[in-house]
Design a protein around this nucleic acid. Structure first.
Lengths: 169, 169
DNA sequence: ACCTGAACACCGTTCAAGT
DNA sequence: ACCTGAACACCGTTCAAGT
């Protein structure tokens, strides 16, 4: 339902029909619509994490980072509605459970620890994630309207970050 | 209404009451609720732009950039609901008109042109904006949950970007 | 224990009717 | 030209009643 019609289409009635049940029955499994969207967001984190993890296998940490961020953006473009749920500001009680996000970001932390050193891993991962999320969110919102090819700015940003975080000579 | 209760509180009925009119009358001025939120987003771009512009006065482009990005984050924290409208993915017809975003980003383009050279201004501004937006969006969504002080990562990211974009020796 | 029908309070939006 | 009352189609959610 989300992929087809966006979050507005994820209606308690529509979900109930899809599951073959009446709407009120959903409240036996889930406290409300917001919580349901939070669960979908958690599942989206899991899918995204499964796409990122293999990229950590690249022996060169710098190209591993590039590959991972590129895969991140590709997944967001392939599943724009699900992506929009990852960092949606839902009521705190209905947010994707923290552990889904933590698992999805684990491979990135590993790669940046190799690239920049363990003591800079968390900080570096936050900087890279902020850039990737911000870029993709602006792309999906149609916010790059000043011409040129936004994708070039993405690659430039990734290279710039990878170079700056690389502690090797 | 937005500041008080978030976008959900911006109801056609609530707006009409605030304006002293019946709900159907709003449709004489605005095609629908989505378009109304888009207009609010446009106004938010104007306010943000007014906060960023003075930072361009700093004679050192690198500290001008730091000041501008810091002001950006401060404004987002002060008006989280309005900020959430800037890059919300509304139906294209209801998005904040492009010129509001363009005006708000003009001072940043100017500063980065001074720092990195005019031919890298657009690309650099996109990288910096992506980082700033992504970071703030994740903060507001409560996405930094792995401990430490996220603000340190923000400062580190800004310094890293400013240094990487600086073409001066 | 689980599902349902009916109801409640609330939406966005349309439109004929008033002035 | 502008505003309104009434209505329509749809929400999320609650709850007593069934099985």
């Amino acid at each position: 339902l989300l992929d087809e019609g966006g979050p507005d289409a994820v209606t308690m009635l529509a979900v109930a029909e899809r599951v073959g049940v009446q709407a009120p029955s959903l409240y036996k499994r889930v406290p409300g619509r917001a919580a349901l969207l939070g669960l979908v967001g958690g599942a989206a984190f899991d899918e995204l994490g499964a796409v990122l993890a293999p990229c950590a296998g690249d022996p060169d940490p710098r190209s591993a980072l590039r590959g991972m961020v590129t895969a991140y953006r590709a997944w967001a473009h392939a599943h724009p509605r699900a992506y929009g749920l990852l960092f949606a500001d839902l009521p705190a009680a209905a947010r994707p459970p923290a552990d889904h996000g933590a698992r999805a970001s684990a491979p990135l932390l590993g790669v940046i620890a190799r690239l920049a050193g363990p003591h800079r891993a968390l900080e570096g991962a936050r900087v890279v994630t902020a850039f990737a999320h911000g870029f993709v969110a602006m792309e999906l919102a149609g916010a790059f309207r000043l011409g040129g090819d936004p994708a070039e700015a993405f690659d430039a940003g990734v290279d710039l970050l990878a170079a700056a975080l690389d502690r090797r000579p």
